[in-house]
């Protein structure tokens, strides 16, 4: 089994990840594997450790134990920028946009590592710098069009309504040209129309842009509709994994959610 690891068809492999804050165990021995091209959902009640798992993947938290591999490469010792450069992008649960910048600049700012020029060239802004900037702008404009953000291109993010800010979050992550996209509760606080839009975006991202999506979401309808596979976390422990159908019919899962609802 150890020998076979390198030839794994999984793009993201999380193996026995354990992480605790002081006494609280936020993740306990969590393992899961995501295939390339999947939409993989992670669900669970509040405080189950979903965001913590994302933070471990993107290098913002360092798990005490376990291994996280992306395309066969270990991520555990890497810093967030290095992990981002490998092609893992993130849309945050609580909006973490650059509030003082425009929508356009927020998106452009995620492409720094894809434009290869230094500060001296930047100061002159000729040749390579200009070429790379135009290339970046081309890509970003396509995302702006894809997410229907043409009208707010030059608007400072701080003034935008919540639903739009969530969309900019997604756009900024896409601007990185990721292979794997981590999306944390993209439709929380959104109305039905906005939720439907978001569902369509996520499907298009997965199918047309060919990006693997790992989704954390409380909206069960969305999870059931989109996901190829679902993992359920409860109090930091994985309690079930399977297709949406299997999860919906799993008594342990139902129990976990009912327990949450009663308390």
């Amino acid at each position: 089994m150890v020998v076979l690891e390198d030839s794994s068809e999984f793009q993201l492999e999380i193996d026995s990840v354990t992480m605790s804050f002081g006494g609280i165990s936020a993740l306990h021995d969590v393992s899961l594997s995501v295939e390339k091209g999947q939409i993989y959902s992670i669900i669970g009640p509040n405080g189950a450790g979903k965001t913590t798992l994302f933070n471990c993947i993107s290098g913002m938290y360092r798990a005490q134990r376990g291994s996280i591999k992306f395309d066969g490469k270990e991520l555990m010792r890497l810093k967030p920028p290095e992990i981002a450069h490998m092609g893992i992008a993130r849309a945050f649960q609580n909006i973490e946009l650059f509030q003082g910048m425009t929508v356009l600049d927020n998106l452009m700012s995620a492409r720094g590592h894809l434009s290869h020029y230094g500060f001296l060239r930047a100061a002159i802004y000729l040749g390579k710098c200009r070429k790379e900037e135009i290339k970046s702008r081309d890509w970003v404009e396509e995302i702006i069009e894809f997410l229907d953000m043409q009208a707010i291109r030059k608007t400072p993010v701080a003034g935008l309504p919540y639903g739009l800010q969530k969309r900019v979050e997604l756009g900024r992550a896409l601007a990185m040209e990721p292979k794997l996209l981590l999306v944390d509760e993209p439709v929380s606080g959104m109305n039905i129309d906005e939720t439907e839009d978001m569902a369509r975006y996520l499907l298009d991202i997965n199918e047309e842009m060919d990006i693997t999506v790992v989704l954390v979401e409380h909206d069960m309808g969305l999870v059931m509709d989109l996901s190829d596979r679902v993992t359920v976390l409860n109090f930091g422990t994985k309690i079930a994994e399977g297709t949406p159908q299997e999860i919906a019919n799993n008594p342990v899962v139902v129990q976990a959610y009912l327990g949450e609802a009663e308390s």
Binding site: M60, F98, H113, Y117, A122, R172, M176
Partner: peptide, 27 residues
Amino acid sequence: NLDRSKIGRSFKAIRDRDIAAEAMGIP
């Protein structure tokens, strides 16, 4: 020129939200 290049954007990203800047690949 610096302002409208990736240098200026990275500076401002760090100013506005350093954690997110890192996650967007800005060292």
